[in-house]
Every structure is written in structure tokens, then in C-alpha cells.
Design a binder for these strands. Structure first.
Length: 423
RNA sequence: GGAGAGAUGGCUGAGUGGUCGAAAGCGCUCCCCUGCUAAGGGAGUAAGGGCUAAUACCCCUUCGAGGGUUCGAAUCCCUCUCUCUCCGCCA
């Protein structure tokens, strides 16, 4: 959520920033509502004040044994009037809040302008795409010919966008997850967490998936429904909900491995074949909770932590800074890590690292106590994939494929696979 | 699933219709005293929101959540959630 005060006082500046995303904010409609809100709220609070002081007087009079009948008569109409005002105010506030919850985050100044992913700006590259002395296959062909990827079997059970992995490949995914968690906890200062995969709506409102992107989520049919997490960012970031941290408790760094569930509504026809885009995939997530003035630096570090994984796996990748039209709803700046896929001969997203500023913490009331003023202030939240295990597995299959159709095991994963060198 | 108890400020814990945003204690901050330490004295110490140039006044809201009764609710009524104890069941 954007600071309501800023929205009120600098509405056109906010609108201008949002327009960089291609987001059209109806300034006039908002200002009209806001004007009504102001007078109605002031009015209502005055009425409440009147009611409160009258009631106190009645109390005093009664205590002194005076006749309170005339006092009661004087406040007779107040109640109805107040009730009417409160109802109108409530309606107006909900309307405003709905608007505010639907506004994306303000962009950082150094986010490049652009419409869509074609305008993203490459920041740096690491590694050289491998040259094979045979025709490179994609992960589907490799996996199916080895009998390690079972798409049809999965679709019999669960439909499209699911996969079953077998034997060495299933084990390699587990090794990959172990390797990533170990690296982040022992070298990058993250604390490992085990978190719920089912969450309630307020957690998703906190991180920004709700109310706007409900159609992207899986939802249970309980009376108070659960949602399957689309990323561990949701439970990890919500650890800070309603917390006021002492200054010396920050920064906090959390990592978790979880499955992620996405309905992929609206992506029909995209990546329908293979394991790129699934309803369920494994990911190791990184989340940081930091003081406001350190988040820009933290984003660079967090991105580096994800990069370390790809470097150790010796997978060529590039880092792109997402352009204004491609930065996600809750982020003010995002770096994507794109890994080289020989089967597609292009770079594909494998990690997305974002600084959300105070956007999420305002929704969650996640704060720290300012050591100088003693006052609570919103913290900044960051998240990034460190990295998506399913896609990392694809990258390994395609980059480590051999002429005979088998896959070499990256050196750093071998200790996690009992020394196995090939699958 | 059955039976019972509970939810109040950073913590402990009073408070069954009015002057209670809330006693007291602890903790914390500042000041005083004491040549260190210990002890003692005094003051302060919730969050959100509105108004505002303001982190100044003033006002509103908040005693697990949501409804209700009332001029007035931490206190009375209803619903829900969570925690604890015992029994059953289970990983």
C-alpha cells in the first residue's frame, strides 16, 4: 500500500509514478472521494466527542443525585445522527481502502522505463553458454527418453501442468534444495524456517497477492477458506505482521523451501509443454526484513545470494533490471536472474529478487522502533527466489546433457547424492 | 471429538455499567542523592487514525475478533477465534 498521506497530499506525483507502469490512476475520482471522506470523518468524530462528553456529564450528575432526565433528552437525537454518519463513513472508508489496496507500489527512480519484458535492461552476464558437439535437446526430450520425467502419468492423476519425476532426477531436485538451503544458512546468514503451505486471506493481503490477484491462487472450500501459497514469501514475510522490532533485531533473513502453487490463469498457451510452468513447483525463498535506509543495499546483496547458487552450479545466467512496465505489483525495484537454456537457446527467468520498500509492511503493520525517536516506523521487506528448484533442474538437465542422453551431476550436488556423477 | 478454564499495556496482574487508556508491581528512560557498587527519592513510559506546516496542541478509535443492549461497556448479552488442562483418537 502506498502511504495514504502521500497519496492525499501528492496525488498527481503518485499518479505520474504509477503511469510509468502503464497504470492509469483516476486522480479526479479519488480526490472527490477523499474530499467527502475528510468532511464526513471530521463530522463523525465531532459527534462522537459530543456524545462522549454528554455521557460523562450524565454520569457525574447521577453520582451527585441530580435529575438526569433533561440531560437524557438533550442527547436523544445524537445517537441516530451519529449512527447515520458512522455508517456513511464506514462505507466511504471501505471504498477508499479498496482503491488503496489496488494501487501498485511506487517505482524506484532507477527502474528503467519500458512497456514489457522486451524493455528490461541487462545489468550483467555470468558464464558462457556451452557449445555442444551434438544437437542440444530440451529437458522434455532428455527427461522422457531417460524415463525420469513423466508428464502423461502426472496428467492422468492431476491434469495438465503437473509432472512426476523419478529416481535420479527426483533425488537431484532434493539435492538441489539441500544445497541451496545449506548455502544460504551457512554462508549468507539466513535462518531456515518451516512454514505453513496453507494460509488465510489476510496473510495474502499483507504481501499483496490479495485482493487483486485472487484468480492466480488455489483456494479451499472451507467456510473461512485457505489459500495454497504461491511462494514462501507469503508466510515468511508475514512473520513480521504486527511486530515492532527493536532496532538491533534487524536485519532479519529467512529462508524456506516450500512447494508453490499457482493457478496460472491467464497463461493458457504459454509453456504448455514441459516443466517450465507448473501448478506446483519447489522453490527455496529468501526474505529479508530491514530498516528503511538499508533496503537498496539489501536488494543488491540478496540478488548476489541467489547468483551464488547459479555460479556454484556453473550455470550461465544474466541479471536484468525489470523495466517499469514489468515490475510486479508490490515491488519498487526487481532484478530477475535468467538462466541459459540450451534447449530453447535463450535465457529464462529462474529467480526474481525484489525490494518492496514499505509497501508490504504498511499492509502488515511490520515496524521497528527508531532508536533515535523511540517511535515505531515501517520496515522494508525484500524477497527473492534462491532459486526456483524446478527451473534449476531444467537448467541442469539442459546444460549438463551428454551425447549419450544422460545428465552429468554438477560437482556441488554430488555430495548430496552419494557421489553419483551421472543420471 | 467430549469436559473445563482463560484471553487486559513490554511483562506480571487488579478492575462486574459512568470521572478507566485502564490500579499496583516489574522492566525501561530521564533527573536527584550517595566519593565506586548496592540501596533510596522524583518524573516519565501503548498503538492506530483524524486535524495540522508539525514527530506541537486538540480530537477519535482500541482491554482476543465481530455483533448487540445502553445516554454511557474492559465490565451485561450473542457468535466466533485462539491458548491452557483433562479424556478420547491419531503421525
Amino acid at each position: 500500500m502506498i502511504d495514504p498521506k502521500l497519496l492525499r497530499q501528492s496525488t498527481t506525483d503518485v499518479a505520474k509514478n504509477l503511469s510509468r507502469r502503464g497504470f492509469d490512476f483516476d486522480v479526479d475520482a479519488y480526490l472527490a472521494l477523499e474530499e467527502r471522506r475528510k468532511s464526513l470523518q471530521v463530522n463523525t468524530e465531532n459527534l462522537r466527542n459530543e456524545r462522549n462528553s454528554s455521557s460523562k456529564n450524565i454520569g457525574k450528575a447521577k453520582a451527585q443525585g441530580e435529575d438526569i432526565a433533561p440531560l437524557l433528552a438533550a442527547v436523544k437525537d445524537l445517537g441516530d445522527k451519529l449512527e447515520e454518519n458512522e455508517a456513511a463513513l464506514q462505507a466511504l472508508l471501505s471504498e477508499l481502502q479498496a482503491i488503496e489496496l489496488g494501487l501498485p507500489n511506487l517505482l524506484d527512480d532507477d527502474v528503467p522505463d519500458g512497456r514489457d519484458e522486451d524493455d528490461n535492461v541487462e545489468v550483467r552476464r555470468w558464464g558462457e553458454p556451452v557449445k555442444f558437439d551434438f544437437e542440444a535437446k530440451d529437458h522434455i526430450e532428455i527427461g522422457e527418453s531417460l524415463g525420469l520425467l513423466k508428464f502423461e502419468a502426472a496428467s492422468k492423476i492431476s491434469g495438465s501442468r503437473f509432472v512426476i519425476m523419478r529416481a535420479g532426477l527426483a533425488r537431484m531436485q532434493r539435492a538441489l534444495i539441500q544445497f541451496m538451503l545449506d548455502t544460504h544458512t551457512s554462508e549468507h546468514g539466513y535462518e531456515e524456517a518451516y512454514v505453513p503451505y496453507l494460509v488465510q486471506s489476510q496473510a495474502l493481503v499483507g504481501t499483496g497477492q490479495l485482493p487483486k490477484f485472487e484468480e492466480d491462487l488455489f483456494k479451499t472450500t472451507n467456510e473461512t477458506p485457505f489459500y495454497l501459497i504461491p511462494t514462501a514469501e507469503v508466510p515468511l514475510t508475514n512473520l513480521a505482521r504486527d511486530v515492532i522490532y527493536e532496532a538491533d533485531q534487524l536485519p532479519l533473513r529467512y529462508t524456506a523451501h516450500t512447494p508453490c502453487f499457482r493457478s496460472e490463469a491467464g497463461s493458457y498457451g504459454q509453456d504448455t509443454r514441459g516443466m517450465i510452468r507448473q501448478h506446483q513447483f519447489e522453490k527455496v525463498e529468501l526474505v529479508q526484513l530491514v530498516a528503511a535506509d538499508t533496503s537498496a543495499q539489501a536488494l543488491e546483496e540478496l540478488t548476489g545470494h541467489a547468483e551464488t547458487i547459479l555460479q556454484r552450479l556453473e550455470l550461465p545466467y544474466r541479471v536484468v533490471s525489470l523495466c517499469s512496465g514489468d515490475v510486479g505489483f508490490g515491488a519498487r525495484k526487481t532484478y530477475d536472474l535468467e538462466v541459459w537454456l540450451p534447449g530453447q537457446e535463450r535465457y529464462r527467468e529462474i529467480s526474481s529478487c525484489s525490494n518492496c520498500g514499505d509497501f508490504q509492511s504498511r499492509r502488515m503493520q511490520a515496524r521497528r522502533r527508531n532508536p533515535d525517536s523511540g517511535k515505531p516506523e515501517l520496515i522494508h521487506t525484500l524477497n527473492g527466489s534462491g532459486v526456483a528448484a524446478g527451473r534449476a533442474l531444467i537448467a541442469i538437465m539442459e546444460n549438463y546433457q551428454q551425447a549419450d542422453g544422460t545428465i552429468r551431476v554438477p560437482a556441488v550436488l554430488r555430495p548430496y547424492m552419494g557421489g553419483t556423477e551421472t543420471v
